[in-house]
């Protein structure tokens, strides 16, 4: 990365506290799942997953291909149910409230829980600025011209993209490189200030340099928002996450199950289950 970018980051990122404070035992975590299972028709993709996602924490979901990581993360903001015949069992709670409850509405849930997809999906014909402003527009948040400018600059800075695009905010987003597009998608997700940010293999379609840039970004963003990231790259999980959850399928046709979860250093250095050790040491998957 260029010096321009590192200076940019220095100005964008003032020093701040990074250690998570002790949590109050009474308050529920921002996001947690209880006995969560997901189906495609009659096929059960995942089963009985209990996980808590803490504040100011990046949680990585790792596991072999097809274990249901992506299915799981898509249940967390109710994107899973877009697939025909898809359904879930168990529950997901946002700050202690069920997002699958009677009153809960998927549109409101997705506004509160943002998502970044595997392949960058900016609106290619909309301009860079309009991509960022799509969030407020979709949610009928009215902004003055000044506020719009501020918002665009602020979230593009937060996504580390500002210096690269500040002179062409009106250019179509389709003209950006893959890595820039993915950071634009992150900026877009931040524009409506979600409580939780879900990232489904956000770097799998990117080159190593862009991957580095996004990983730095994740590290900065966790001060702001609870992050859940699916990755099949174990080095990435080790680099960016505070906690790691390992999901796997024991035999073909079985649903994916949570094997273990804990601080990332424990999972990679002292896993308690043999399956986890086999996976993280590269003997399996």
């Amino acid at each position: 990365m260029s010096t321009e970018q590192s200076t940019a980051r220095a100005t964008e990122a003032p020093p701040g506290p990074s250690a998570p404070p002790p949590s109050a035992p009474s308050a529920p975590p921002p996001l947690r799942t209880r006995g969560l299972g997901a189906f495609f028709g009659s096929h059960k993709a995942i089963e009985d997953i209990d996980l808590d996602f803490e504040d100011n924490t990046v949680t990585a979901l790792i596991g072999p291909s097809g274990c249901g990581k992506s299915t799981y993360i898509r249940t967390l903001n109710r994107m899973h149910e877009n697939v025909p015949n898809a359904r879930i069992e168990g529950d997901v709670e946002l700050h202690g409230e069920s997002i699958y409850g009677r009153a809960a509405d998927p549109v409101a849930i997705r506004r509160a829980i943002g998502m970044v997809f595997q392949r960058p999906n900016p609106f290619p014909t909309k301009s860079i600025a309009d991509n960022v402003l799509a969030g407020p527009k979709f949610n009928r948040i009215r902004l003055s011209r000044r506020e719009r400018q501020d918002l665009v600059e602020r979230v593009l800075r937060a996504a580390g993209l500002w210096n690269e695009v500040k002179n062409r905010l009106r250019a179509p987003a389709g003209g950006l490189s893959g890595g820039q597009q993915q950071r634009l998608c992150i900026a877009r997700a931040l524009s409506i200030d979600p409580d939780v940010l879900l990232m489904d293999e956000p770097c799998s379609a990117l080159d190593p340099q862009s991957t580095d840039r996004i990983e730095e970004l994740i590290d900065q963003l966790k001060e702001r928002v609870t992050i859940v990231i699916v990755t099949h790259n174990m080095q990435q999980a080790a680099r960016v996450s505070d906690r790691t959850a390992f999901i796997t399928i024991e035999t073909d046709g079985e649903p994916g199950r949570l094997v273990e979860t804990g601080p990332t250093s424990d999972i990679f250095n002292a896993p308690s289950k043999p399956a986890t050790e086999a996976y993280v040491s590269g003997r399996f998957g």
């Binding site: 943002g114 799509a134 877009r188």
Partner: peptide
């Protein structure tokens, strides 16, 4: 992916249709 992008931003259904 375009529909999902809009939905993940909390766009209501009609909004996704009209804007995307």
């Amino acid at each position: 992916a375009q529909r999902e992008a809009a939905e993940a931003l909390g766009a209501p259904r009609w909004r996704t249709t009209v804007s995307v």
